[in-house]
């Protein structure tokens, strides 16, 4: 009876664990400018755990706001990170991408992160302010993209295998 329910205790605990992993990875790497594992984890969570990624993602976003303090940047977190699961659902519905494809997706997302994040600045400072804010950060967006690409290329496969084993253990 319990196993038929959409959210069992076991699933809930695993979601909480995955969310904690996401949050800890972000906080522990925050001292390194534009190097993060969040993009890679979101790709992996979407591929392995499907729709559960939305719960994990929005609890993570809430934790980020509580930990760092809610500001303009936090508004962008409400939609920026969601682009990754949406892209994975759209591009790789049933198939697992190669490490290289995942790295390309993650790298491209990193390069466009500043552009996506600049949208709330339109509300506070206008279109020109948002444009200036974005263009001033382009060198860091490129570094973000390169970091994402490298990290995903190296860690995608081993982490994917680990998470698949976790999922199998769950069911």
């Amino acid at each position: 009876m319990i196993s038929n329910r959409s959210m069992t205790t076991k699933k809930l605990v695993i979601d909480a664990f995955l969310c904690a992993l996401l949050f800890i990875s972000q906080v522990s790497l925050s001292w390194l400018p534009n190097v993060e594992l969040v993009s890679l984890f979101l790709i992996l969570y979407t591929l392995v755990f499907g729709r559960h990624v939305w719960i994990i993602l929005y609890v993570f976003v809430l934790l980020e706001g509580l930990f760092w303090g809610i500001g303009i940047w936090w508004l962008s977190y409400l939609y920026v990170w969601a682009i990754i699961p949406a892209a994975i659902f759209l591009l790789y519905k049933k198939n697992c991408p190669s490490s290289f494809s995942a790295a390309l997706l993650s790298g491209t997302f990193g390069m466009l992160f500043g552009l996506f994040s600049s949208l709330p600045t339109i509300l506070t400072g206008g279109l020109y302010a948002a444009f200036v804010w974005w263009t001033a950060g382009i060198p860091f967006d490129i570094l973000h993209g390169m970091g994402n690409f490298t990290v995903s290329l190296i860690l995608f496969k081993p982490l994917y295998q680990l998470l698949v084993r976790l999922k199998q253990h769950q069911s």
Partner: peptide, 27 residues
């Protein structure tokens, strides 16, 4: 599936080139 890394690579290179051009023009 076979085309996807190629298309992904082209997209990534196009995005990188666009960012470099915009930054060069606005820095």
């Amino acid at each position: 599936k076979r085309l996807s890394p190629f298309l992904g690579g082209c997209t990534a290179i196009a995005v990188l080139a666009l960012l470099l051009v915009i930054y060069t023009l606005t820095r």
